[in-house]
């Protein structure tokens, strides 16, 4: 059996709108992924802890609060510290183009704006996993 893609979808920070995250979660499930949804108000520590335990391929953050320039780097730093070197950090929300570029330069994956077609994001994630995953099922 082919190994399924596992993705953690989390909403860090204080804003309480998780509609976007839920739409993405459902789309990923429909694309055959196993989605671990952790809900609202997650700290970077909680997110990375869950990512480790669930052995996910992808961590996706939904950030609408404007705090993306602190939250993405904080999660990325913790991921590296904990040894999650083969896990993609991606996400979406209201993020200006130049911030996306700055975050990508730090090592965050592609980020997706509010109007993104979910299929585009899913294609990107599938591609990433097929290139970077280290353990494949025999």
């Amino acid at each position: 059996m082919e190994r399924k893609i596992r993705i953690l979808i989390a909403k860090p920070g204080l804003d309480g709108h998780d509609r976007g995250a839920k739409v993405m979660a459902a789309a990923c499930r429909d694309a055959g992924m196993e989605v671990i949804y952790t809900g609202l108000r997650q700290t970077p520590e909680m997110i990375v802890n869950a990512a480790i335990q669930e052995d996910v391929d992808i961590v996706a953050l939904s950030i609408l609060s404007g705090a993306h320039m602190t939250l993405f780097p904080a999660v990325l730093k913790l991921m590296k510290e904990k040894g999650l070197n083969d896990v993609l950090l991606t996400g979406g929300g209201i993020i200006p183009e130049e911030d996306m570029k700055a975050l990508e330069a730090l090592g965050v994956g592609k980020l997706f704006g509010p109007g993104t077609n979910t299929q585009e994001a899913i294609e990107y994630m599938k591609n990433w996993v097929s290139k970077h995953r280290t353990y494949k099922v025999v």
């Binding site: 399924k4 499930r29 694309a31 196993e34 989605v35 949804y37 952790t38 809900g39 909680m46 669930e54």
Partner: peptide
């Protein structure tokens, strides 16, 4: 999901209060 083979696993939502 019997259709896609994917799954939405939401049990952690309640469990997150256990922290790290």
């Amino acid at each position: 999901s019997p259709f896609s083979g994917g799954a939405l696993l939401g049990d952690r939502i309640r469990m997150q209060q256990l922290g790290a």
